[in-house]
Structures are given as C-alpha cells and as structure tokens.
Design a protein around this nucleic acid. Structure first.
Lengths: 106, 106
DNA sequence: GCTCTATTACGATGAGTGTCGTAATTTCCG
DNA sequence: CGGAAATTACGACACTCATCGTAATAGAGC
C-alpha cells in the first residue's frame, strides 16, 4: 500500500501561495525537473545546493500544493500534481512549463 | 500624442521575473485591481500602504512586463498588459485572475 | 511666478528567507 | 545487531526586500 505525506486538498490550494512557491529560481527549476522525470527524490535531483536545502524547497512546494510526496522506505519521491493543478487553476502550470526563454535584452 | 514609460518588449519578458513580481501579495492585489479598473494611477489605487511604496511596486510590475505606464502630465496611469501577456504566456494571467479563493483549511 | 498635487528618488530599518553545517531519525541490508 | 544511506530537524548567518519618511522633481492652474 502506498503512503503519502500530508498535503493540501484541491480547494485549499491558494494561488498566491503557489505563486510565492514558484517565485524562487531553485524551486522553479525543481518544478521543471519534476515535469520531465515524473518522480524523483531530493538526492536524485542533481542541483547545485545541499540536499538539506533541496528538502526545504520540496517541503515548500508540497505545502503550496504543487507536488505530492510518497513515502517509500527512507526515500521520499515527489511528483508534480499536474492534474490537480490543472483542475484547480486551468492553464496556469502548463503556461509556465511551456514558456519560451526570454530574448536577452541589449 | 501619447508617451509611455520604458518597458520590456514582448519576447524579453521572463516568466521567472513575472512570477517573482506576482509573488508579493500587495503586487498581486494591484494586478487584480488593474484588471477591474483598466487604468489607474498610484494614488487612485486605494491601498493600505504609502504611495511611495505603491510606486515602488508598480515599477517592479512594469519592469517585469506586467503593466505599461502612460505619461500624462504629472500623473502616471498604468494598465495591465493583458493582450501582450496572453500572447507571451497563453493562459497564465487569465488563470491567475479567474482563480477561486481557497477554502480555509481546518 | 507661485502654489498645489502627483510622482519618484533616496536612505534607513526591520522582517523574511535561502543556504549551509550538523545532528537526529528512520529504514534497509548484510 | 550494526553500518550505511536518505531525509529531516535545528540553529545560524547573510542577504534580499517591503515599507516608511522625507526630500526632490515636474507639471497644472491661478
């Protein structure tokens, strides 16, 4: 049986909180990574910050409602709540994930 | 003839910068207000912070590409760049503006 | 020119938070 | 049982930034 960590229900998710979570560059990077690999743990994500920091960010992402985390032994693999987010804020997450990089000014 | 303040071109707008701009509660509130009134100056927006702070927030919103500001005498009325944003990040702004408030947990 | 108003520029300050290092906890496996 | 690995809890620190008060600037109208 699969056990999951606590997370907000669909209608508890606040768009302001989601935007605050996505505002940090490292967390936006994590979200983009999870969109590719479907599921990953904190250590498996190869990021230029310490694992304790990654864990901190993933916690914020989960509390905001962006990711859900499964309990698998000592591992805590997380995944994007794509369907949930699409139902709660239609078009929001997909717009961010498909966004084109900006043309550098000057 | 209408004069406008400097603002980023469409393809210069960065989604990360936009998300950072929208992450602040007061700025999100300003964006929601501008979505209703179509155009407003800093003083006309009735907000619980000093006008100098509102001006600061509107500057950030303009530099991020969210609003454009017209020069009209001493006044600087700003408006949401709805069409531009819709073309740059389809669905993003509308998803935020139409978002339902969260059901309070507990 | 003078005054009033709108806006911004500037410096200061206090709160928030991203990051780290370390320790503690938990689970897996030999 | 004992060690290794994954995660998190905790405290500390530096830096960002939202907010304010004040002053400076600029235009409108008398």
């Amino acid at each position: 049986m699969e056990t999951w960590m606590a997370q907000p229900d669909l209608d508890e998710i606040d768009v302001a909180t989601v935007l605050q979570a996505l505002a940090d560059p490292m967390r936006l990077r994590i979200v983009r990574l999870l969109a590719e690999v479907e599921e990953s743990t904190c250590t498996a994500l190869d990021l230029p910050v310490k694992v304790s920091t990654v864990s901190h960010h993933v916690n914020i992402l989960r509390h905001s409602g962006l990711v859900s985390t499964r309990i698998d032994g000592t591992a805590r693999p997380s995944r994007l709540r794509r369907d949930d987010l699409e139902r709660r804020f239609p078009g929001l997450l997909s717009a961010i994930l498909t966004a084109t990089p900006p043309r550098p000014q000057r």
